[in-house]
Amino acid sequence: MNRHEYRNLVILVLPTAIVCIAFFILPMAKLVMIGGSGERGLVAYLDILTKPRHFESLIATLLLSILVTVTALAVATISGLFLERNRFRGRGLLISMLTFPLAFPGVVIGFMVIMLGGRQGLVSEISKAVTGDKIVFAYSIVGLFVGYMYFSIPRVILTIMAAAEKLDPALEEAARSLGAPQWRVVLDVILPALKPGLIASGAICFATSMGAFGTAFTLATNIDVLPMTIYTEFTLNANIVGAATLSIVLGIITWTALYIARSLSGSNAVAAG
């Protein structure tokens, strides 16, 4: 590379570099420093494991995210395959409705969960009329789960439909011609073909669920998910150090999940998801 080309390259890279430094590297570095700036220095990061409130919040968030990811993958894979393979009236409308949740912020999704399973919600009204008991789930982990599922499913369905479209029907016919029953075709042909898409969209689901704030905030649940704990520490307790350490840990977990997905499913899979 000669000097001229080198100079052009620097000029071209400059905008990206500025944005990256200003909005990514500097804040992250500052956050790491704040996390370690308390009386006990970097040991503060260990508090997450020793402080029960923080630790429980971390575990609850992890479990919820994993549960949402697995369930969303299962539900969306089945529906995605069905939608890709069957042509019926209203199919287009149904697909655009299924992708609707992508258009809403978490607050609205939380609001909808309350309308469904809150104290004055649809389920509570119906259950009261039928059994006399009000069933209310909006403010528990069930409410969070429903809300997270709502915005996770469309992300997976779209990826699965795209992957299923590329699947050569002759592959399934070949497996069947060799005597494979339907469940083996799914196991040996369809799922392996969908694997990159499943990993990619699963990672996105997991990352989104780990960091989701709006829904949790609206539902004001009795479970503190990590983003809620960070908010509480930061605004109510003015525990800046605690909030910073939790933020860094949350970031590392999410980033690791995305990184693993990237390396398992090929470099462009996450971008495609």
Binding site: D168, A170, A175, A193
Partner: peptide
């Protein structure tokens, strides 16, 4: 119990 050969080969890529 047939054997079938396809234009697109249809070999299992995995």
């Amino acid at each position: 119990n047939i054997g079938m050969v396809f234009q697109s080969y249809a070999l299992f890529p995995n």
